[in-house]
């Protein structure tokens, strides 16, 4: 039997999500004896996945797949699942995977569960733990079909090395040209040079307490010193101080970095819903009664306009000495 994972990549290199999926699959395979197979589209460094326990990489080299196309990717996965006899398919919490995986689940008529946070608790019945109600609960769900599909919540399992000997094969899915014609990309806009929110290990986030967009210089500087991405609360995006793509929370992006730094954010329940899976939370707020402190690991009560510049200076010194 086999476990099939989606090897998403950036410029041909498997990304962190792909490695996390490989780690998960490999840990599960240790229990079941399954083979771990990765499917990617235009990988140039597929071998990186062997380190995380992938035995075989199926690489689609057909140039029609170079641009992401959800329907075509779902078709490719269906064919790969058939070809490999996969009983478990894993994808990650990325924009593309969340788009094509439900299509795949519909095509295969397979049980599909998102927001999965841990290895299956039991194989028979096949039961997994997932987040639900915007992180306010954990649910135990049974998947009842022979082929099962899981979407793993970001940063929930982590990277675990387990090097194996692997092979790469070219995989050529049969997909009609019409599928690629049907929905066509005409433009892409990506913020360059900045750490994307979804991959960030550290996120520096600002709220209405920062008073105005002109005060974001120190937020960006703090992010730069830490190699972090920047985010914001909903009203900050609504008022146009920051782009919508930075809005985190229940109705914005859900993030789970190793460190989330909340500056001048009160910690409303809808904000917490999107960030409280973070491994560590540091809150900087002038009001000791701010609800965010209850959800934080570390807190500094103080004026952001004093604390943040001081923190930047100290971090710069720390980085120089380490």
């Amino acid at each position: 039997m086999a476990i099939l994972i989606y090897a998403e990549h950036q410029n041909g290199k498997p990304n962190k999500t792909a490695k996390e999926l490989a780690s998960y699959a490999s840990a599960f395979a240790a229990r079941t004896g399954d083979q771990v197979i990765a499917l990617g589209f235009g990988l140039t460094e597929p071998e990186e996945l062997y380190r995380y326990g992938v035995h075989k990489v199926l690489n689609v080299e057909d140039p029609r797949f170079a641009d992401f196309n959800a329907r075509a990717y779902a078709e490719a996965f269906r064919q790969a699942a058939d070809a490999t006899g996969a009983s478990l398919i894993l994808t990650g919490q990325t924009a593309d995977a969340l788009y094509f995986t439900p299509l795949l689940a519909g095509l295969l008529q397979s049980a599909y569960v998102t927001q999965v946070i841990d290895l299956p608790e039991s194989v028979e019945p096949f039961t997994v733990k997932r987040k639900a109600f915007s992180n306010k609960a954990i649910a135990h769900v049974v998947l009842k079909t022979p082929v099962k599909i899981l979407n793993l919540a970001k940063n929930s399992f982590g990277l675990r090395e387990n090097a194996v000997e692997g092979t790469v094969e070219t995989f050529a899915p049969q997909v009609d040209d019409g599928v690629f014609e049907d929905i066509k990309r005409v433009k892409v806009e990506k913020a360059s040079g900045k750490v994307p929110l979804s991959d960030a290990e550290i996120i520096v986030s600002g709220g209405r307490g920062l008073k105005g967009p002109e005060n974001w210089g120190m937020i960006e500087e703090l992010a730069e010193v830490l190699g972090a991405a920047t985010a914001c609360s909903k009203p900050v995006a609504d008022m146009g101080w920051r782009p919508h793509s930075e809005h985190v929370g229940q109705t914005g992006k859900q993030v789970a970095p190793n460190l989330y730094i909340a500056i001048g954010i009160s910690g409303a329940i809808q904000h917490l819903a999107g960030v409280n899976s973070s491994k560590n939370i540091l809150v900087i707020n002038i009001d000791p009664e701010a609800p965010f402190f209850k959800a934080a690991d570390y807190g500094v009560v103080g004026d952001a306009f004093e604390v943040v510049p001081a923190l930047i200076e100290k971090l710069k010194k720390f980085k120089l000495n380490s």
Binding site: V113, I138, V141, K144, K294, D297
Partner: peptide, 19 residues
């Protein structure tokens, strides 16, 4: 194709370390 068998609340956070 799926069945929710049980729910629980996530473990509570320990208290914040104030600096």
């Amino acid at each position: 194709l799926t069945e929710y068998v049980k729910f629980e609340k996530p473990p509570a956070k320990g208290s914040v370390k104030l600096i």
